[in-house]
Design a protein around this nucleic acid. Sequence first.
DNA 1: ACTGAGCGA
Length: 138
Amino acid sequence: MMKNSLVSIARRALTTTVNSTALNLRCYCSPPSSSKAKLFVGGLSWSVDEKSLQDAFSSFGEVTEVKIIYDRDTGRPRGFGFVHFSKEEDAASAKDAMDGKALSGRPLRISLALERVRGEPVVVPRLRNTGDSSRRDA
DNA sequence: ACTGAGCGA
């Protein structure tokens, strides 16, 4: 029970980007019970399309939404996307079935999509201290 | 043309 509660704790993925002037923080939360029908598909070939993913995943269940993430800087696909299923079990089946399978000649990495935290990414204007040594908080 | 380990506006 208690261990299950600990496991149920939402894990946070923190991406820290250190710049000369600012520190960019992006937080993601893992859904405890909801939005499990959302799959993160990584390792996608840069030549893959949304319709390809939809066609590949619709074979396992009803795909409600398919979106491939493109880089807004270069305009090229980052190589990963998100697939929404109407049923969580179908999403899990598709994940278990398509995970490790090669699409467009490239192995796919499928996992539960982490839900991005609401709001905009936290941007810290400046680092308080470089911290040459690990500081202990009282 | 080449590249990649990554969670979206």
